[in-house]
Nucleic acid binder design. Sequence first.
DNA 1: GTAGAGTTGTCAAAACCATAACAGAATGCG
DNA 2: CGCATTCTGTTATGGTTTTGACAACTCTAC
Lengths: 223, 223
Amino acid sequence: MVKNRKSCEVPDATVHRLPLYLEKLKLLQAIGVEDVSSRQLAESLDIKASQLRHDFHYFGGFSRPGRPYQVEKLVPALEQIIGIAEPVPTAIIGAGHLGQALANYHNLDVQGFPVRGIFDTNPKLIGLEMRGQPVRDMDELETVIREEKIKIAILTVPSANAQAVADRLVEAGIIGIFNFAPTDLKVPEGVAVRNERLAVGIMSLSFKVKCILQSQEEDIAEV
Amino acid sequence: MVKNRKSCEVPDATVHRLPLYLEKLKLLQAIGVEDVSSRQLAESLDIKASQLRHDFHYFGGFSRPGRPYQVEKLVPALEQIIGIAEPVPTAIIGAGHLGQALANYHNLDVQGFPVRGIFDTNPKLIGLEMRGQPVRDMDELETVIREEKIKIAILTVPSANAQAVADRLVEAGIIGIFNFAPTDLKVPEGVAVRNERLAVGIMSLSFKVKCILQSQEEDIAEV
DNA sequence: GTAGAGTTGTCAAAACCATAACAGAATGCG
DNA sequence: CGCATTCTGTTATGGTTTTGACAACTCTAC
């Protein structure tokens, strides 16, 4: 199966678009659309059709020349590629506001990431129910991860604890960490980390806002 | 001031790194570091020094050849560039779990985005206090935005309402929208949108996890 | 004062990604 | 059937971003 190894040698940019394709396709599926051409799909996502076909090309053909894509086939194919053909048991570490928000984010389940464990150190939170899951003491972390075969953890603990918790997660067998703490985690080879920095997002937005305001001022000055 | 207009013609990739530079520099500042070389700073962020210098080069020199960067000068310079030299009044639309999480996210204030208005339609939420701010009825949206001169809005409402709310925001004078709804917002020229899709994040993580698992299986098979 | 180590700003090369172009295939219609 | 249209898969082109390389400059040590 050389193809498997090769199918992982894909640009990050392409990987980030796969979820968008899947999302849109599920929407089409829900309203009963059967066929969709690369152009239709691309336009609805505001990208070029050639880029979409190029992306798909990394994974081999999803259709044949002359025939549009079949939604019914494409959805499971993408799910397979993304790795959510089977539900991926997920844990949330840190039941603060952000952790709660994510635990209650219904879409997580729907999109293939059922939450099988919520953990915190705060005695006031331990025992509370969130979406049918009790908040557990961190003592149980390793046990639950192993029993539930959890592979992905969402980390919403304070920065100061993030690295220590990450170490425990890796030790317990976690392979993917979705990190919301503004800290660069050091993890061994064979563990994937994705940092989600709210601050980066809002600041790059601020940069654009500043540019807009400046150009408006200049436009006025020029009149 | 041609430089202003030019300073906005910067690759997105560079813009996204600016907040990281600033964050790290503030950390250094806090522990009393005065000088820092491009190599030191770059290594701590796990990027190449040449990239950092290249990024800075877009905005003109922050130092002179031979001399390292001075933290005390670099921090305000970056704040200026990002547009947070002055605090940027911000609103949160949607006081659900995610909205609450962000409202309580202390760093928002610290990093230059004081929350000056929290809005929701749910009568049960209206009136509640979050970080010293009452949750207001959406009726007050336009008034508060204008009075507080709010320019940036964080959108955490359900997908179905996102576009309608965005329209109101733009009408009221909002220039930047930080959108957490999985919807592509249509906004007029002169309004910046940044989409933050949690689903995309966790799915691209899942892709990498799947690749790791596959390569592990293959390694075992090869032995 | 001079050599050497270390630094930035700048430009050139390499790697990467997005777009365009096109061959080959299917479909629909007269 | 034959033609026009539409479509994918694939390759080539063009552009952007990252990385490497180096001149010019500063400081320290001796």
